[in-house]
Computed example of a mutant assay.
Amino acid sequence: MALPAASRWSIVAHNVRRLMARDGLTYEEVCEATGLDARTLRGVLRAAKRPHAKTLQKLAEGLGVTPDELFAGDESAARAEFDAATNPAIEEAVEAAPDLFDDWTPSDFGELASRVGAGGALTPHGVRMAAELMNANRQTIDRARIVLESREAEALRVVIDALYERATAR
Rank of each mutant, 00 (worst) to 15 (best):
residue 61 E to F: 14
residue 130 A to C: 02
residue 63 L to S: 03
residue 62 G to F: 14
residue 116 V to Q: 13
residue 111 E to G: 14
residue 51 P to Y: 02
residue 47 A to M: 03
residue 112 L to I: 11
residue 139 Q to I: 01
residue 7 S to L: 13
residue 111 E to D: 09
residue 121 A to D: 00
residue 115 R to E: 00
residue 145 R to P: 05
residue 102 D to C: 12
residue 136 A to Y: 06
residue 81 E to C: 13
residue 92 E to M: 00
residue 34 T to P: 08
residue 50 R to N: 05
residue 72 A to R: 15
residue 24 G to E: 03
residue 24 G to V: 09
residue 55 T to L: 08
residue 163 L to A: 10
residue 90 I to K: 01
residue 63 L to H: 08
residue 46 R to A: 15
residue 127 V to H: 08
residue 59 L to D: 00
residue 157 R to K: 15
residue 145 R to G: 09
residue 166 R to C: 01
residue 136 A to C: 01
residue 124 P to C: 02
residue 69 E to P: 04
residue 124 P to L: 03
residue 5 A to D: 05
residue 158 V to T: 14
residue 3 L to T: 01
residue 43 G to N: 07
residue 52 H to F: 15
residue 107 S to D: 09
residue 68 D to K: 15
residue 14 H to P: 00
residue 91 E to F: 09
residue 154 E to D: 15
residue 57 Q to L: 15
residue 32 E to L: 14
residue 121 A to C: 01
residue 97 A to N: 04
residue 67 P to V: 14
residue 127 V to Q: 04
residue 59 L to C: 07
residue 95 E to H: 04
residue 74 D to T: 08
residue 133 L to C: 11
residue 143 R to H: 10
residue 159 V to C: 09
residue 8 R to A: 14
residue 98 P to L: 06
residue 161 D to P: 12
residue 127 V to D: 00
residue 55 T to F: 12
residue 157 R to D: 07
residue 80 A to W: 08
residue 56 L to A: 04
residue 108 D to H: 11
residue 17 R to I: 05
residue 117 G to F: 05
residue 73 G to L: 10
residue 70 L to P: 04
residue 56 L to F: 10
residue 109 F to K: 07
residue 74 D to Q: 11
residue 54 K to P: 00
residue 115 R to P: 01
residue 138 R to E: 06
residue 6 A to E: 15
residue 126 G to Y: 09
residue 14 H to K: 05
residue 37 D to Y: 09
residue 11 I to Q: 13
residue 147 V to Q: 02
residue 3 L to H: 04
residue 170 R to H: 12
residue 137 N to R: 15
residue 1 M to Q: 12
residue 68 D to I: 10
residue 130 A to P: 00
residue 151 R to V: 08
residue 109 F to A: 01
residue 119 G to K: 08
residue 129 M to S: 11
